[in-house]
Design a protein around this nucleic acid. Sequence first.
DNA 1: TCCATCCATAAGTATCAACTTGTAGATTGA
DNA 2: TCAATCTACAAGTTGATACTTATGGATGGA
Lengths: 135, 135
Amino acid sequence: MNEDVFAALADPTRRRLLELLAGGEEPVGAVTAALQAHHPISQPAVSQHLKVLLAAGLVSVRAEGTRRFYALEPRGLEPARRWLAHLGDPLQAFAGPLDALATEVARGRRARRAATPSAGQQDAGQRDAGQRDAG
Amino acid sequence: MNEDVFAALADPTRRRLLELLAGGEEPVGAVTAALQAHHPISQPAVSQHLKVLLAAGLVSVRAEGTRRFYALEPRGLEPARRWLAHLGDPLQAFAGPLDALATEVARGRRARRAATPSAGQQDAGQRDAGQRDAG
DNA sequence: TCCATCCATAAGTATCAACTTGTAGATTGA
DNA sequence: TCAATCTACAAGTTGATACTTATGGATGGA
């Protein structure tokens, strides 16, 4: 649900946590021990990473006794997957959100093409970044 | 090539740059202008972002005159795509890399069960990494 | 040659993020 | 009730990173 998914995935420790949870739900202590087998890390640090993953919708929690079982939430990865897929299929992708940007870029191309190359094109673009060709 | 691909993708400005370049190669000035249509950002900042994307293998450059054309490098996204795909297919994925970790997790469970904890709690678990229970 | 343009690098700042230690809340067992 | 265990929160530190302005190198036109 969150487009901060990529930010959550940026940390290698968090990616390792997701890999661990891909095998099934685990309590915090178990994944902490698993991480510690690789490199020293404190239990609060793991809790904080899990919190980030939870906020990003990449994991879910279930309490049982004193333990909290975290599980991978596969649907949370969909925004990332979709974004990557669309970037490979630029034909129809990003039509909406990129509309304005595409317009800007297209203007740049036109400017370059039609340019009476004596005048700067981008300087105008940078300074005049207010005008919009909204069309 | 780089597993820092996720780190490169973590920044929204860099993602927007990739979206812009998905429409075809563009010189720095054009993408700078496009970004500036959204929010103020300096040209050096854009250059720095492009440098990060280049290091991550997500874009390529081509010099032409005074301009440098950046283009999306679709193959650079493959590690990210693959990682996401494998996480969705946990059945066979990560069997190798996660083997050791899974072992650790299992050992942690056993340790918790069998442990005679006199002092530390899970600290003992990571130090204890010697006993093996083949059952 | 001189100047303008395009872009990258340098240097400095400020915000953010990952980590630590310490501790508190919740649950379980004696 | 008391002690032990599991986990999250609080506060503080440190390093990374995203940004700025200033500037330099390269190219192209007059």
